[in-house]
Simulated scan of single mutants.
Amino acid sequence: MGKKADSSPWFRDKAGPQDEKHAPATLRNRDAIVALLRELLPAQGTILEVASGTGEHAVYFGEQFPDLLWQPSDPDPEACRSIAAWTKRADAANLLPPQQLDALAAKWDIAKPAAILCINMIHIAPWEASIGLFRKAALLLEPDELFYLYGPYFRGDAPTAQGNLDFDRSLKSRDLRWGIREVADMDALAADNQFARTELVEMPANNLSLVYRRQ
């Protein structure tokens, strides 16, 4: 699938272990995401985060939702080392060790979660990764369980922010398989895999939350 990334690179945490990395976008979006997740997440169970990147979101979500068990994951070994370093620092009983999961893999050897989150991955991976992600989510989730996507998306019925247009060009200059996806294409892929979008929520910095439920 390739590394999960943002428009800003990861930085090593100079005050912490070498493996800890920092993604600036995490601090900017985590509170807005948590506010929405409070309305969406189940009261108990394991939450699988796909493409956890540095691991900072997983640690923060674990702190904010202590009654839920958090399973971070990423296809990149370097990212998994960062996740492990952050979870060790947090020393929280509800954070599980990271799993190396790739949306392009044939299958995932992982227990069924109560919900799946994927933040800022879709635009930084080939379209085949989105297909694999939905297929695996369909196998893992039960009817009405949550599949949550966050990131920049294009909407055919709404003006596109110049920042997103510039970001899309930057992504394609790095890898032609990357780019901001259309909400309509995500909805079509969801329908092909027995999901329906129940909400679209506008988020800070021209991002969207797409809320899907297994049918």
Rank of each mutant, 00 (worst) to 15 (best):
M1I: 04
G2P: 11
A5P: 07
A5W: 06
D6K: 12
S8P: 08
W10I: 07
F11A: 11
R12I: 14
A15V: 03
A15P: 08
Q18E: 15
E20R: 04
K21L: 15
K21W: 12
A23L: 14
R30T: 11
R30E: 09
D31C: 03
D31S: 10
D31M: 10
I33A: 04
V34W: 08
L37V: 08
L37P: 02
R38G: 04
E39A: 03
Q44Y: 09
Q44L: 10
I47C: 02
V50I: 12
A51C: 15
G55E: 03
H57Q: 04
H57A: 03
F61T: 04
Q64D: 14
F65L: 09
W70M: 04
W70N: 04
P72F: 01
S73P: 02
D74A: 03
D74Q: 13
P75A: 04
D76N: 13
E78N: 09
R81L: 15
S82L: 07
A84D: 07
T87C: 06
K88E: 08
L96W: 04
L96F: 09
P98S: 02
Q99M: 11
D102Y: 06
D102L: 08
A103C: 10
L104S: 06
A105Y: 03
K107I: 14
A111P: 14
K112H: 14
A114H: 08
A115I: 02
I116E: 04
C118Y: 05
I119S: 10
H123D: 01
H123E: 09
I124Q: 03
P126Q: 06
W127I: 06
S130M: 00
G132A: 09
R135Y: 14
K136M: 13
A137V: 05
A137P: 04
L140G: 10
E142V: 09
P143G: 06
D144S: 12
L146K: 04
L146P: 03
L146E: 00
L146H: 01
L146T: 06
F147K: 07
Y148N: 05
P152L: 05
P152R: 03
Y153H: 13
R155I: 05
G156D: 15
G156P: 11
D166T: 11
R169S: 15
R169W: 12
S170W: 12
S173R: 13
R181L: 00
R181H: 03
E182G: 06
A184V: 15
D187W: 02
A188P: 09
L189D: 01
A190G: 15
A191S: 15
A191Q: 13
D192Q: 13
L200W: 10
L200H: 13
E202F: 10
P204H: 06
A205C: 12
N207Y: 05
N207S: 01
S209T: 02
S209K: 05
Q215I: 14
Q215H: 15
Q215A: 11
